[in-house]
Computed example of a mutant assay.
Amino acid sequence: MNILGIDIGGTSIKADVYDEDGTALGHFSEQSTKICHENQTNEILEQICDLIASYQSSLDLDGVAISTAGVVDSQSGKIVYAGYTIPSYSGTDFSSEIQKRFSIPVTVENDVNCALLGEMWKGAARNSHSTVMITVGTGIGGGIFTNEQILSGHNFTAGEIGYLPIGNADWQSLASASALVQMYEEATGLHHQTGKTFFEAVDKSDPVALKVLETYVHHLAQGLVTLSYVLNPEKMILGGGIFARSDVLLPLLQNELYHAVQDQRFLPREIVTATLGNEAGRLGAVAKFLMDQGKNLS
C-alpha cells in the first residue's frame, strides 16, 4: 500500500508516503502553511488537495492520512474547532472534499492523538495498553489511549489538557514552553530569550535560571499529578522541543511528582520522553488509517 501521511501545523505542512508497515518510502516534502492573520483566512484545504494531486501524478495512492492541529471530528473528517493560530479553520471538511476530488479513502485525526498513535506503533509506547501523551510547546496538548482506542470524548475535545485549571490560571499559561521563557524574561529583565538561552543559563548554574526552573517544574508537575489521579496510565510520554533537555527536566519532574502524590501507586509505571520527533504525527496518521481499514498494526 502507498499511504500519504500529512501533518498540518500552524507553521508548516509535512508529508511523506508510507507502506503498511510504517516505512517511509522516500517522498518527503515540506511547505509553509498559508495563513493570513490580517485577513483571518487560510488556504490549507487547497494546499492539501494540490499536494495530493502532486503525489498522485507520480504514485498510485491507496489512501490519505491527515494529522492536524485543532479539534477534529475523526468520524466525519472535519475540523470542529480551532484556536487563533489557524484562523477560519473550524468547519474545514477534508474528508468530503478529498473523496470528491480523488475518490480515495481519507482519515483525519488531531495531531497530538496522532503523535500518541505513532509512539505506540513505533516509538516510546510500544506494547503499552494505557498511555497518556503530553506535548509542551506554545501551549500544552494531550492524547489519551485506553481500552485499545484513542479517547475522543463526545465533542472530540478529550485531551485538551492545556485548559486544566491550576489555581487561578490554566495549565498551559503556567507550564508551556512559552510560559517558561516568559517567566525567565520577567525574572531577569532580559528580552528575546528562548528555551535554548534559558537552558544555557541553567547549565551555567545561574541562580535566577535555577529558581525559574524550580517554579516551572512545580507548575508542570501539578498538571501531571492531576492526570495521574484521573487516568492512572501505565505510561506517560512527554513530547515537545523542550524535552530535548530531558536530562535536566525528567529527574526534577520525577522528584516533584514523588513528593506530590499521596502514594506511588497513583503514578504511571513509566514516565518517558517521545522518541519519534516530527515524524510521530505522520506515522500516527498512517496508523489511524490502517486501523480504520481493519488492519492489524505490526
Score class of each variant (00 low, 15 high):
residue 18 Y to V: 00
residue 12 S to D: 13
residue 107 T to N: 06
residue 178 S to G: 01
residue 117 L to G: 03
residue 119 E to V: 00
residue 279 E to M: 09
residue 12 S to C: 08
residue 15 A to T: 14
residue 134 I to F: 02
residue 291 M to F: 00
residue 75 Q to P: 00
residue 77 G to L: 11
residue 108 V to C: 09
residue 170 D to F: 08
residue 217 V to N: 13
residue 188 T to H: 04
residue 11 T to V: 07
residue 160 E to G: 12
residue 51 L to Q: 07
residue 90 S to D: 05
residue 185 E to F: 09
residue 200 E to T: 11
residue 271 I to Y: 00
residue 151 L to N: 01
residue 45 L to P: 05
residue 210 L to E: 15
residue 76 S to K: 12
residue 211 K to S: 07
residue 260 A to H: 11
residue 116 L to Y: 01
residue 102 F to R: 14
residue 147 N to D: 12
residue 79 I to F: 05
residue 193 Q to G: 07
residue 211 K to F: 11
residue 81 Y to C: 09
residue 285 A to S: 13
residue 253 L to I: 13
residue 123 G to T: 11
residue 73 D to W: 10
residue 158 A to N: 11
residue 3 I to F: 00
residue 233 P to V: 00
residue 7 D to E: 12
residue 96 S to H: 09
residue 190 L to I: 05
residue 281 G to R: 07
residue 172 Q to C: 01
residue 169 A to T: 14
residue 172 Q to Y: 11
residue 118 G to W: 04
residue 67 S to A: 15
residue 191 H to W: 06
residue 228 S to C: 00
residue 60 D to G: 10
residue 136 V to W: 07
residue 9 G to K: 06
residue 39 N to H: 15
residue 134 I to D: 00
residue 57 S to L: 09
residue 225 V to F: 10
residue 238 L to N: 03
residue 67 S to L: 05
residue 97 E to L: 14
residue 93 D to V: 03
residue 61 L to M: 12
residue 127 N to I: 02
residue 249 L to A: 04
residue 204 K to S: 15
residue 34 K to E: 05
residue 119 E to Q: 05
residue 196 K to Y: 12
residue 90 S to P: 07
residue 271 I to K: 00
residue 149 Q to R: 15
residue 106 V to S: 08
residue 181 V to D: 04
residue 214 E to R: 15
residue 88 S to D: 13
residue 235 K to M: 12
residue 131 T to V: 11
residue 179 A to Q: 12
residue 173 S to L: 03
residue 51 L to V: 08
residue 135 T to V: 13
residue 122 K to E: 07
residue 101 R to A: 07
residue 96 S to Y: 08
residue 266 F to T: 11
residue 129 H to I: 01
residue 5 G to N: 00
residue 50 D to Y: 12
residue 239 G to V: 02
residue 67 S to W: 03
residue 142 G to N: 09
residue 114 C to W: 01
residue 99 Q to L: 06
residue 24 A to Q: 15
residue 201 A to E: 08
residue 189 G to W: 04
residue 13 I to N: 10
residue 19 D to I: 02
residue 74 S to E: 06
residue 237 I to L: 00
residue 60 D to A: 15
residue 68 T to F: 03
residue 189 G to L: 02
residue 231 L to S: 11
residue 298 S to W: 10
